[in-house]
Simulated scan of single mutants.
Amino acid sequence: MHGPASPGWLLVALCAATGAYCLLRMRSTVEEQRRAAGGEALMGFGMAVMAVPAAVAVPPRAVWVTYAVVFGGAAVRALWEARRGAHHLHHLIGACAMVYMAAAMAASHGHHTHGGVSLLTGTLLLYFTVYVLWSGVRLVPAVAVAAAGVVPGPGWGDRPELARACRLSMAIAMLAMLLTL
């Protein structure tokens, strides 16, 4: 993505750490946790790679097209899974945002243009801003319960407050990436 190198590397680290934790969540005993964690791990690692500062490496157009195809597949899977619950709609929007950013990068061939914010970019920025605020509010009670010593589940993969924190950090990262688009 375009933008300064230092924040870009911080974004890479945040997304990679989130993806790694989501891989740990795939070991959960709760099937729905495992199912959601796989898509979130893909999103975290995909965002980490996409966030590598353009000053370091500008991938060829074929890489961005591959990204669009991979996240297009993730969007189709999220659409299929959405019939089970609303959370998968968030995965669908995230995957579509990744397709959109990959397509924009493929079209720009790595050159940043200052043509203003498109309607789609603005809509995605609004969605992820609302999601960040909503997730942050939902996280506060979960952290308070965990601080009180009530931890739901024995393992790292079954900690809903950590899963929410990961989703929140990925949404913040998505906002940062959309802003640099």
Rank of each mutant, 00 (worst) to 15 (best):
S6H: 10
C166S: 12
R27L: 09
L42G: 15
A104D: 05
A48H: 07
L179A: 13
T129V: 08
Y127S: 02
Y127K: 06
V65N: 02
G19F: 02
A146R: 14
P7M: 03
A13F: 01
V65G: 00
Q33L: 04
H111R: 14
G19K: 06
H91V: 08
V132F: 01
A147H: 04
W80T: 09
L168T: 12
V130Y: 14
V132P: 03
R83D: 08
R138L: 08
A57Y: 07
R77K: 03
E32V: 09
E31P: 12
A146F: 14
S108D: 09
E40R: 09
L11I: 01
G157M: 01
S6E: 10
H2Q: 07
V52P: 08
A57T: 07
A13T: 09
R159N: 11
L11K: 06
L126A: 14
H111S: 08
M101W: 06
S169Q: 04
W156T: 05
A146E: 14
A102L: 02
A97K: 08
A78R: 00
P60V: 00
G72D: 05
M174V: 02
A142C: 12
M101S: 02
R138V: 10
G110K: 03
H91P: 09
G44E: 01
H112T: 10
T18K: 09
A173H: 05
R84G: 13
C166Q: 13
P154V: 13
A82C: 04
S135F: 10
A16D: 01
H112W: 12
G19S: 05
G155Q: 08
